[in-house]
């Protein structure tokens, strides 16, 4: 069926009104503000914008702002590690839950509980889980380290330093500059599995069972079935999920806010957290700079989305 070739006023109107009334204005204003050092106590007007106009001043400042650079690299670090992990683990969970066994609905529901639990409760609990001294993660690591250590002693070998470190101390997690981000990623991936899993599950359920039957007739084992049937047919969902996860990853905020406040020494300070600090965390707020950071973030997301969109034909099955 060829599309109707006209502008569907009736269909577009509600969204258009909403966009023009409540979205276009704020977006335009934030773009304007990114070129100013607007004093937030000075009621916003065209004159106020004009008076505080500094051209590309905020963007030049970003160029020279070491904390921003750190936040940028931290964001990349987070996205590059957390997004693949989240996609991979949630895909595994979805594959496991995409079958019929007693209690499967209950387990699916369990995985969605983090989405209704207070993020403060989640964050604080993870702080305890990752507590280097009394948290269960390090307790387990120390126990495991000691087992390995005694094994080495048993063989009259010198224990490697890494094992000894694990047995006696273990990672400092949120209080250690190098371990804080891994700690955040652990918590964020854990909390994000449910949502992504649901999207994968939906994709999996849509795959026609006859494909598997045909593959089985051809003598394909479980692995071959996965590589040759499941993955290609699921690729549109993988694409959707990856795109959403990337956009979400670049805007990670909540758990960092609760768990580390961007520390220690800015080790978990990401772009959105830095922006939040500039817009609401310091006093008086620096809305102009915050807006500039927002537009920088936007530029990256936009570029990334365009690239993804272009690349999808290469690997997304139904797009080819």
């Amino acid at each position: 069926m060829s599309s109707y070739r006209r502008f569907p006023w009736l269909f577009i109107l509600p969204s258009l009104v909403g966009f023009l009334a409540f979205n276009a204005g704020p977006i335009l204003i934030s773009l304007l503000l990114s070129f100013t050092k607007w004093d937030i106590f000075n009621p916003l007007s065209l004159q106020a914008v004009k008076d505080s106009w500094i051209g590309f001043g905020n963007f030049v400042r970003m160029w020279q702002d070491p904390t921003l650079h750190k936040a940028f690299w931290n964001t990349l670090y987070y996205v590059l590690v957390a997004v693949p992990l989240e996609i991979f683990i949630s895909l595994l969970v979805a594959l496991g839950l995409n079958r019929d066994f007693p209690g499967v609905k209950l387990i699916r529901t369990l995985y969605l509980l983090p989405t209704v639990t207070s993020i403060v409760a989640i964050g604080l609990l993870w702080r305890w889980v990752l507590n280097p001294y009394v948290g269960p993660v390090n307790m387990f690591l120390r126990w495991a380290g000691r087992q390995v250590e005694s094994f080495f002693t048993f063989l009259h070998l010198k224990t490697p330093a890494a094992i000894h470190w694990l047995a006696s101390q273990g990672p400092g997690w949120l209080s250690d500059e190098h371990w804080a981000m891994p700690g955040i990623i652990l918590a964020a991936v854990w909390a994000g599995i449910g949502f992504r899993m649901l999207i994968f599950l939906a994709g999996l359920q849509n795959i026609d069972k006859t494909y598997y039957e045909a593959a089985a007739l051809d003598g394909a084992g479980p692995w071959q079935q996965f590589w040759n049937v499941t993955l290609p047919l699921l690729s549109p969902t993988v694409f959707l999920n990856t795109l959403l996860a990337l956009i979400g990853g670049f805007q990670v905020f909540g758990l960092i806010y609760v768990m580390t406040g961007g520390g220690p020494l800015d080790a978990t300070n990401v772009l959105l957290f830095y922006l939040y600090q500039k817009a609401f965390g310091i006093f008086p707020p620096d809305m102009g700079y915050a807006s500039a950071i927002a537009w920088l973030l936007f530029a990256f997301l936009f570029a990334l989305t365009v690239v993804q969109w272009q690349l999808r034909k290469r690997w997304v099955w139904e797009e080819a």
Partner: peptide, 21 residues
């Protein structure tokens, strides 16, 4: 495209302008 762009601008900087409107 314009509608997608709204997903990519952090809401934190849109809130005060929206409040003013």
């Amino acid at each position: 495209l314009f509608s997608l762009i709204t997903l990519m601008i952090p809401a934190h900087v849109l809130i005060i302008p929206l409040f003013i409107i």
